[in-house]
Amino acid sequence: MSNETLVSVENLGVRFAVKRGGGWGKASYLYAVDDVSFEIKRGETLAIVGESGSGKTTTALAVARLVEAYQGKVNLDGTDFLSLDDEASRLARAKMQFIFQDPYSSLNPRLRAEQIVREPLDSLSTMDEAEKKEIVDRLFAEVGLRPEQQRLFPHQFSGGQRQRIGIARALATQPDLIICDEAVSALDVAVQAQILNLLRKLQADLNLTYLFISHDLGVVQHMCDSIAVMYMGRVVEHGTRMDLFNNPLHPYTSALLSAVPSVDKARREATKRILIPGDPPDPVNLPAGCRFANRCPVAQDICRSQDPALRDVKGGHKVACHLVGEDAVSPL
């Protein structure tokens, strides 16, 4: 595997204006993505995990310029993607494709499968029809669909097959980065396994890079090379798959991992469940200190007054917690 960085995100910020209590009051902001930084190496998979509303999707959308970032940088293969003009960004965006959760609503029901897969080529390139046809044929084979299925409409496919069409469409422009936002969450487990195997095979064959968002930590563990854990718009821990699963450092990461129900008896017996009662704070009215302090089992005074920064504690394993020292030992 190369060591070349394909995507580097620096201090990314997305905020939404929200009105509280009506009237003419000044708008306040919800910082959905707050000072987020991470890197993805070419050919690897970065997973983003975190609870609902923690900012995973918004981060992905901002990386692809589908929502506007008010601060920060996205470096894509050496170009400063967010500062490109519209035309240049349209071309660069072809190098970045999405696969969404819902295989039902993300495909245009009036188009045939073959048209859906060809569409990104139509809008981007100057290829002739024969070339496009060849690419579409190849894509159908690559994702495991039969040639005669090209003429069918989305409703004539099963959920897993629809997800295959979505993958073929995403591959059409030969992207470097594919963003999978809960791409297998709506599928039954058996079909999910088929799609996960396909994604990993395509990654190996085409040297694809994935930004993989999922709430299923078993799936994440299987798919990723590194992980960013988000909590309330922040990355609270970022490291390799081995670091995160075998030596979680942030109390939220530990709680998250301990909550996953497991078929493995040894794991069930070895894991002490770390309960985090209560709810996250109001995202529009954030507390002064650590955003996790009100639920954190080991919070100290400093946690309620100072906001911990994300810092490297051990060879690239980064964590944002006051109680993790240079020894990289979990405070729990």
């Binding site: 487990v189 996960l196 930590l217 078993g218 798919m223 075998n246 991992l257 493995d264 794991r267």
Partner: peptide
């Protein structure tokens, strides 16, 4: 059981 990627006691 075997089609699901489970988290085992050590990764």
């Amino acid at each position: 059981i075997s089609c699901v990627p489970h988290i085992m006691s050590s990764i």
